[in-house]
């Protein structure tokens, strides 16, 4: 008899928990952090962007890790690096800064699950097309 009472209570709690789960908890899947590398060429006065999916509301880090001439030699030219949401024919930035390449993240942003983008653009400092590599770490 006592066991039946406990069972009845368990059914109630389990059903209640199921309800709460459906109405208040977002359905996030567990996603391990991944690093995507966006490599390309930035032309004078140009801009290029890259879209990616964030699965978990963890920080997104963006590192402009390499900026080189076509010969492969590194340069310390500053370019614009931005983080945002794809909109229209571009990436609409919520965070942007002018930076040279480095091995520490230049942009660190907490993002809820969704589609985001990183954009690199010339601020007028380029005298020739440059190759770039941007590391994007996200969950």
């Amino acid at each position: 008899m006592k066991r039946l009472a406990v069972f009845g209570l368990f059914v109630c709690v389990a059903a209640g928990a199921g309800c709460q789960s459906e109405t208040t908890q977002p359905d996030y899947s567990i996603v391990s952090p991944v690093t995507e590398t966006f490599q390309g060429t930035l032309n004078q006065q140009g801009a290029v962007f890259y879209s990616f999916i964030v699965g978990n509301p963890d920080p997104v880090s963006v590192t402009l890790a390499s900026l080189t001439k076509s010969s492969g030699t590194a340069v310390t030219t500053s370019v614009r690096l931005g983080f945002g949401i794809p909109a229209g024919e571009t990436c609409s930035t919520t965070t942007a800064l002018t930076t040279a390449s480095g091995l520490q993240a230049q942009v660190l942003q907490v993002a809820s699950p969704g589609v985001y983008c990183v954009i690199i653009s010339d601020t007028g400092a380029l005298t020739e097309p440059l190759n770039f590599a941007i590391k994007i770490k996200h969950s």
Binding site: M1, L4, A5, V6, F7, G8, L9, F10, V11, C12, A14, A15, G16, G18, C19
Partner: peptide, 13 residues
């Protein structure tokens, strides 16, 4: 109390 527990569970479900 058993019936109450079970009824609660059914209602919640």
């Amino acid at each position: 109390s058993c019936l109450l527990g079970l009824l609660g569970g059914v209602l919640a479900t």
